[in-house]
Amino acid sequence: MRQIDSYAHSNKLSRLHPAYKAGCSLLALTLCLALDHPTVSLLITALMLALTVGWAGLPWRFVLRLLGAEGGFLLTGVLGIAISVRLSFDQAGGLGPVQIGVTAESVQQALHVFLRALGGAAALNFLALTTPAADLLELLRSLRAPATLIEIMGLTYRFIFALFDSLERMTMAQEVRLGFADWRNSLRSAALIGTNLFVEAFRRSRALETALQARAWTGSLRVLPREYEHLFRR
């Protein structure tokens, strides 16, 4: 997650107005879903990969690894489509009435769903890898999304990383005291870390409120928008 965030801030398109990138990503996603054809899905996957690597300048190894991980996850999902399990009392075999089978039709359907989802994932990867979270929030703000929703999203984004840091520190503190030496200790340490993390999140929310008040908070988290680059002269 940190790596995705880091690339979102350092790629060649990071200063480009997020509307272009969101538009490109959503168009690809819509085409993938609406045309619903394996060839289109494959083409869109290839195109989005090319844009992410060629246009945004991200390392192809990382982009492929990310898509590969998502593909692996999708594969486990489509297995259920490819393999059919049914009950038949007419032809009881080795597994009794349960029949497990793979048909050419079910495999084709699974592949179809897999490619469509992969195309969608590639399209969203392009957006996530090229656009900082702050810009996405800014885009939502300009699209008149509810302010409270945007503020909650912004704070969640900010505090995910703060809690990650706390989690790392707590885990290290447990490790140096042999907290993960065996299975039993590991379970106990995980429970303790979970509890402490909850308390830490609560403490942080109190401290956050105090710090907000100190900066003359008026009830909404208003911040200045960034200045973006545009594809066309305005």
Binding site: A134, L137, G154, R158, R204, R215, A216, W217, L221, V223
Partner: peptide
């Protein structure tokens, strides 16, 4: 405050500094 992590709210430095003046 003592812990800077408790007082940085926004996604970027630029936006975080702008919070007080806009308030």
């Amino acid at each position: 405050f003592q812990n800077p992590d408790d007082q940085l709210f926004s996604a970027s430095v630029y936006q975080d500094i702008s919070l007080g003046p806009l308030n």
